[in-house]
Write a protein that binds this DNA or RNA. Structure first.
Lengths: 199, 199, 199, 199
DNA sequence: CATGAATGAGCATTCATTCAT
DNA sequence: TATGAATGAATGCTCATTCAT
């Protein structure tokens, strides 16, 4: 039992190393050797757990995606719809210094997905899930049950706006300082909810 | 004069090679060698024009930025404000197969800007310019002169939405097919204009 | 007893895996991992039976050598001398598609023996034995008892010819198609027998 | 001019390093790094001249083949047929310590050709040429012009015998010491010539 | 008897860069 | 202006081997 959990732990440690590396130095800084050093294991060990670099990246992306979706799922389960939308929005856009890293990693994976089909497949899942969740929340906030195409559209636009703001926040922090970002996020969320209510 | 223009031409040929490479194979496929091969010159020649890979990337990004801004500037000069906003939006989001490549390149540079300060500096210019232009157009579409913070906010949200849609279009083409994309772009533009008119 | 025979079986399974690998992909394709995969055991298990790769190769070579010598020994025991020579020759040279593999493996080991002293030692045994057997058969075919140096010489030349034809058959199948090979083998055998009879 | 010859020289130096390595340590000892060290250049330089290891091996094999064929061609040009056959035979079988290395290299390449199609193609050329040359010499030694299938067959058997003796000389030097080897070569050559004269 | 974890060296290859010409 | 030669570091990956269990 100790062994099994050690192995799992080792894997997770490696995944954490990948994520940390992406956050700090970007995607191109992720090399098997760098990951090994960061996780304080030998290069061979990394490849024992992930036979290819691609597999390693995939595992890291899956982990990041899991973090996002599990958080958002919890919001949907535990909060009233409008509040859930608001919290989700603030999860996607880096409004605190802490979430900066997470978003940075997510965007790095997203960018890579544009060019890497395996990563794209993993990425798609999350995008589809987020859109569906937001559409559902918008519908419920409007006192409707899910399924109205209007909610789908509003969800897609809101999600795009949040992604765009996140992208801007990372690459143009001066144009989009946290203060401004918060206001813009709120206005986008308000618009989406309004738009679903009587669009 | 012939020599000088030859030199300019050679430089441009190299820049085109970089852009083509990014479009087709992504950022990580850009190596000095690959660029040299694509431009059909020797590896040494590439480094004659760009002493550093970084310089080469910077030049390519500047060229891409110039293409975007010159197009958008022309729209602002030649079209009535609402139409200019609409055309600009359709330039940012890849609605035709042709513009797919351009947007793909732009996003690749954007992603890189998240970890590369030099590229980020170049990138900022374009972001700031686009926001200012769109704010101005929204103001004029509302029968106002520029300067109202409302227009700035609407511009920022619109720009974020367009960026987010572009990102999604590239990475999740199935969730965001061209048809749907067009409708979402239109609704975002309409909302921005309306919002500036009587927000 | 069951356990012991299981162990023997496991060992043999590994040896078979090595031989199969050599036959299909050549000597350099033999890695501990590949062998483990082919035998469907863990990498550690391979090294339990063969503490060293070298030991593993040695066992495989011994097995191949044993196959050759046991066959040839049987021929000598069961057939009249001239027929035994003929059958032996046809065992050494790959005249059927089936024996192709065996010869291929044998040659791979032989080539390796040129630079690997351990394998060379094993290899020597078979070479010496084959020459002695063929010399004995040639002597008996000539109605003599063994021991005449002429038979030794004829045996050595015949053996060399057969080895050379085998080598050529593997590496130059177009120059030495099966049809031609059969004729050349026959003529070499005939010459050896004649030569021993009245040389 | 100095540059060009330097480059040619560098290439040749590398090829020599490969050959030396094969001779001393066998084929599997040939790594790009080892070659670089032996030729006293950087690893990168090796790959500047030979973009792949395969290309490097191919060049080395071509060089070895060229040595053999040019020597044999000279014999055929300059000597009476019977003497040319004899000298050629003594070139193929390592009768002196010096020729040991050459033959060792040749056999290593031959063995590899069994598993490597590119090398096999190069190898075939030499085999075909040698058989044709020997057939021609045997015909002329018999006072005939080339073309008789008998000479072809005798040539093929002789060549196989020489190859087999060479193989044995390398892998079983104790069974086939130089003295004995010389006698066996002579008898094989004599038989081939006799056989072509009145077979 | 057999495994899985871990290691460190080695592999071929690609890379950005320097430099003499 | 442009090239080809050369370098050395870095890449992803495979390898044989060791060892605790």
């Amino acid at each position: 039992m100790g062994e099994a959990s050690d192995a799992v732990e080792a894997r997770e440690q490696l995944v954490r190393a990948v994520i940390g590396l992406v956050a700090e130095l970007g995607f191109e800084a992720v090399s098997v050797r760098q990951v090994a050093m960061r996780a304080d294991v030998s290069g061979g060990t990394v490849q024992y757990y992930f036979p290819t670099k691609q597999a390693m990246l995939l595992a890291a992306m899956a982990e990041v995606a899991a973090r996002v979706t599990s958080t958002v799922t919890a919001y949907r389960r535990d909060l009233p719809p409008a509040a859930a939308v608001r919290k989700t929005a603030r999860k996607i856009v880096p409004l605190t210094k802490a979430s900066d890293e997470e978003v940075r990693v997510w965007l790095a994976f997203t960018a890579r997905a544009a060019v890497d089909e395996d990563l794209a497949a993993e990425h798609r899942k999350t995008g589809g899930l987020l859109e569906a969740y937001l559409a559902d929340l918008l519908a419920r906030a409007a006192g409707r049950t899910s399924g109205d195409p209007v909610d789908r559209a509003n969800s897609a636009v809101l999600l795009a706006t949040l992604d765009g703001l996140a992208l801007g926040a990372i690459t143009e922090p001066r144009r989009l300082p946290k203060r401004r970002l918060a206001r813009l996020v709120d206005s986008a969320v308000d618009h989406a909810i309004e738009s679903s209510k009587h669009g």
